[in-house]
Design a protein around this nucleic acid. Structure first.
Lengths: 219, 219
DNA sequence: ACTGGATCGATTATCGATAATTGATAACCT
DNA sequence: AGGTTATCAATTATCGATAATCGATCCAGT
């Protein structure tokens, strides 16, 4: 049959994985919900195999939990894992900073460009663009650490996906977000390692402490 | 044929995964080596499906690299990933310390027992037992952070497997290892957060800087 | 001989079907 | 009735087969 896309550029399992991430993050698939392989396969018009692979990857990044022979369930992600992820992010990004700053591998221009883009987006009130610029900023730092495993662990957190949720849930002042990044950038460019690490921690733990789930928490 | 185990207690894919981890860590499967799915399936007497799942999990923890449609390859684990893992470990364990210490959730007795076991093993010159005690010590700290995602990321590093390799490759003074842990424990028990974090970093980065591959590096 | 392209073998990605397991329900013995 | 066991439907884990794709080889035309 003439299926959905004529170009399966990526592998099916990758597409399914990304689709599931989106659906989980958006809340379409609720925490605790059981993910039945055959049903998902049907919904994507594929067989069970690529779905299983996708679920394995989701499990590896902690978005779902699989109990052998029992099934796969969406983890309680919004309430718990989301805020947890900030602590892990902070730890990894701080380590990357400790690696990159003394080594002088930080891409100053790219970081400046990210902050500028963030400022501009904040001025427009474009939440999505602020998030994109922020992710780019932090990814540049992680990359500059030149540590594949660190990079790997960071990417596994699915920062993009989580960021979009957070920004929508927290509704921070976009100008403040941009300012915080500018401050961190200053510390980085002046090679103030201690201050940069401190700011990285404070910045992220700040979000970790916020009641992301103001809407859903007290129910 | 009467196959290897009559009791497939765990799922096949899990068994295959663990087997591959062991074979990679032991060096039986060399860095850069291609892992052909059908060949592995044959060697385990299974079909391709559980092998693919196992490989996906290995990819998720960074032990192999998969390029779509190209194949799966053992990452350069000894020379690169191993030392990289110490930086990531340090970052995660420091974050766990920052969470656990102020919260007062550290299991003091268990930590003391780990250090005692380490001392005792060091006295016997039992490298394996020192490694086991060390892993237990650090896992207790990570657990005490009460952050599932952090825990998840830490476990994904396959600390056990890597530790065994490291201890054999580095051949550190076991007494020193025990002393370092004792010092860290002191800082933890006296709630000296800054010092504990510092020690955690120094301790692990120390290994990261060592030429693990004295045998193979300069080739 | 040298470059560009067609062909071939090997391997991965996916499929459809089957075996095995789980949790729930219903029948059963004391 | 109380608790235990047999049965059932749903679902996962695995299999064997097929289609799609990659990399290398071989060949023709210049």
């Amino acid at each position: 049959m003439t299926e959905t896309q004529p170009l399966p550029r990526l592998t099916l399992s990758r597409q399914i994985r990304d689709g599931l991430v989106r659906r989980i993050v958006s809340g379409e698939l609720e925490p605790g919900e059981r993910l039945v392989e055959t049903r998902i396969a049907e919904s994507y018009g594929t067989s069970q195999a690529p779905v299983r692979e996708a679920l394995r990857e989701l499990e590896a990044i902690g978005m779902v939990e699989t109990r052998p022979r029992r099934g796969t369930f969406v983890r309680h992600f919004i309430q718990q894992t989301l805020r947890e992820s900030y602590v892990v992010r902070a730890a990894l990004e701080e380590a990357a900073t400790r690696l990159a700053l003394p080594a002088g591998t930080l891409p100053a221009d790219a970081l400046r460009a990210d902050v500028a883009a963030m400022r501009e987006a904040a001025g427009r009130g474009d939440v999505g663009a602020v998030g994109t610029a922020s992710v780019s900023f932090h990814r540049h730092i992680v990359d500059a650490g030149h540590n594949e495993l660190l990079k790997h662990a960071w990417e596994a957190l699915q920062i993009e996906a989580r960021t979009s949720v957070t920004l929508l849930a927290v509704e921070p002042d976009l100008g403040d977000v941009a300012d915080e990044h500018a401050e961190l950038l200053d510390a980085l460019l002046s090679s103030d390692l201690a201050k940069a690490c401190q700011l990285t921690r404070d910045h992220q733990w700040h979000y970790a402490d916020l009641p992301h789930d103001a809407h859903g928490r007290a129910r």
